[in-house]
Every structure is written in C-alpha cells, then in structure tokens.
Amino acid sequence: MGRAVVAADLGGPEVLQVVEAAAVPPGPGEVQVRVRAAGVNPWDWKSYAPGSGARPPVRLGLEVAGVVQAVGPEVRWYSVGDEVVAWPVTGGYADVVTVPQRVLVRRPERLDAVQAAALLGAGVAAAHAVDATGVGDEDVVLVHGASGGVGRMAVQLAVLRGARVIATASPRWHDCLRRFGVEPVAYGPGLLERVRDLTTRLGAVSVAIDAAGTLQALETSIALVADRSRIATLVALDRAAALGILALGHGPGADPGNAVRDAARSQLTSLAADGSLDVLVTGTFPLEEAAAAHRRSREGHAGGKLVLVTR
C-alpha cells in the first residue's frame, strides 16, 4: 500500500489527511508513475474549500514528476524506468498515480524532479496567454502578478519571444525579475502613472496578461492597451466578457486552450532543461506536511512554487 493525501471534508488545510491507497493498475493507454515530487497549486486547496461543490474525500494534486513503474496495453511511447513529468493528473499527492500516457512528457536529465513538478501547471497557462495574445518582438507586454508562478513564466516566455516586458510585483521581487531583462513596477495606488512613465522609454503597451485578477490590474490594462483582444486574464474570468477581453482557462465562457497547453508541455520541459526558463521553487514539504504547504500557499506570498516530495 502507498500513501495519498485527501481532503476528508470541506474546509481549510486542517481537513487534509494522509491515507493508505492501493496503486491502480494501468489500463489501456495508461501509465503508472512512482511520484518523486508533486507541485502545489491554488486549485488544490480551492477544490475542497466550502462552497466548492466537491464531494469528500477529495484526492489532490494536478502535476507530478516521477518514474514509470508499469505500463498498460496500447502504451507506445513509455517504458518502465522512464523519468517523466505529468500534467494534468488526478490525485498526484501520492506515492503512486496512474495517468493517461497523453499527459506525460519525458523529463530531461538536466531538469531536476522538484523543478519539473513545479513547471507545467503554471507554465502551460503562461504559454496559453502568450500565444492567445500573439506576443511578438514588436510588443511591449504588461504582466500583472509577475512574482507568482504563472506570471513569472509569462514574463520569461514573452522575453523569449523578443518582447519588452513591464512586470508588476511587490518590490521585494524586483531584483529577481530584473534578471530576466524586464522592467519591474510596484502594484498599488499610482500603478497606471508608473507604467505610463516607463512607456516613454519602452513604447506603448500593446499586450496585457493578467495573472493577478485585481480590479486595478484590469483597469490599468484597459487604459493602456488599445486592442482589447490583446488583453487576457487567467484569473478574473467572470469579468472578461463584460470588458471585452480574453478569458483563458477553465470557467464559464473561457477558452481552455487545450491544444496550445498540450503542445506546450514538451516545449516547456526543453526550455527549463537548457536553462532558458527559470523555475523558482521557494519551498519543499514532505508529502505528510501537505497541510503546511497549503497554509503557506493560501497566504499568497510564496513568490515561486511549492512542491511536495515523497520518501
């Protein structure tokens, strides 16, 4: 028997439990993965919050890195012993998880398992935003929430496309963001004026990517970007239609971008492996301390990604 983390009831991190869980044999097209590390995402703790509609017990964990330990019939691309990264999965907070082969990519040797487990959830969302807004080398891109997992990835992907980037974040993250060749700016009162000051040197903002979801982020984006089809939010999905901007992700009226996100998996792992994409992990926790990881994630100031590691 292996272990798995479940939310035994709706509530806060106090409802999380580590339980015994039998490994599920892989069926046709499925692969059984021994988990080395599992990424922590806000959706994990939102999935068992009061009002979520979930029916406990809830298995948690959307992204993992691990090693293939069994393959089912009709699996063509993976063999026992392959190091892999998987997203999206169900129940990744576990010693073993069984997943469809289509959600896997091989983990390059130069990419650490902990970093790999922190890559795809945020990375595919950022890749979707950069693709949907058509970021190119002529653009000045404003990224809101640039110190978070998705925003930090969006900043780097936009730079890799040759864009000039303005990134909103708390001042304590500004030096970190400058390493990517971007212009950091503090959010809060006066944001619009501070960004406009930067545009006198960088040029007019042509794209805005919202990974913060605040009213200020939306209002600033609309004030600066002439073409609203080049403003995307990954958070404030319920406001997008009324504002005439793109809603990206999983929610009513949003574009899930499945094809773009699926294609991004291998691209992101390659970029992270060769050092073109920096994956910041700001905390690791043993699997049995998932509740502590969720408490820290809920504070909203982790800066990078949190990761659970198995024994």
Rank of each mutant, 00 (worst) to 15 (best):
R107F: 08
A125Q: 13
A4C: 11
A122V: 06
V281T: 14
A291V: 07
V99I: 02
L120C: 01
G72P: 02
W45N: 13
W87L: 14
A38E: 08
L271D: 09
W87V: 15
A117N: 09
D274N: 12
Q32P: 11
H294Q: 11
V185W: 11
V135Y: 08
S276C: 09
L243C: 15
A302I: 04
V260W: 10
G162E: 08
V40E: 14
T200N: 02
H294G: 03
Y93T: 04
L308I: 07
V97E: 03
E30Q: 15
L306V: 03
Y187R: 06
G188E: 14
V155Q: 10
R228Q: 09
Y93E: 02
D131Q: 14
Y48R: 00
A21R: 11
L218T: 13
R106D: 09
Q32T: 10
A236N: 06
A154H: 04
P252N: 09
P171A: 03
E299N: 13
T233S: 13
L120G: 00
T220M: 10
G283P: 07
V135P: 09
V67H: 12
T233M: 14
P88C: 00
A65E: 12
P25G: 00
A23Y: 13
V155T: 09
V64Y: 04
A240H: 08
P26E: 09
V159W: 02
D112Q: 01
L160M: 11
G244H: 06
L243M: 15
V165S: 12
G92K: 02
S266M: 12
P184H: 13
V207F: 03
K46Y: 05
D210Y: 10
S229G: 08
E289R: 15
W45E: 13
A122H: 12
A264Y: 07
P252V: 10
S79F: 05
I209L: 11
V85F: 02
G2C: 10
A211D: 14
H174K: 14
K305N: 13
S52I: 04
A242S: 15
D255H: 12
A158R: 12
A167F: 01
T214I: 04
V96Y: 15
T168V: 05
L287S: 12
Q69I: 12
R152W: 10
S297F: 00
G11P: 11
L16T: 08
D227N: 11
E20N: 15
V182D: 03
V31S: 11
R107N: 05
G251M: 11
L119W: 05
A7P: 11
V235T: 04
R107I: 14
A49C: 07
A241P: 06
E193C: 02
A132V: 15
V85Y: 01
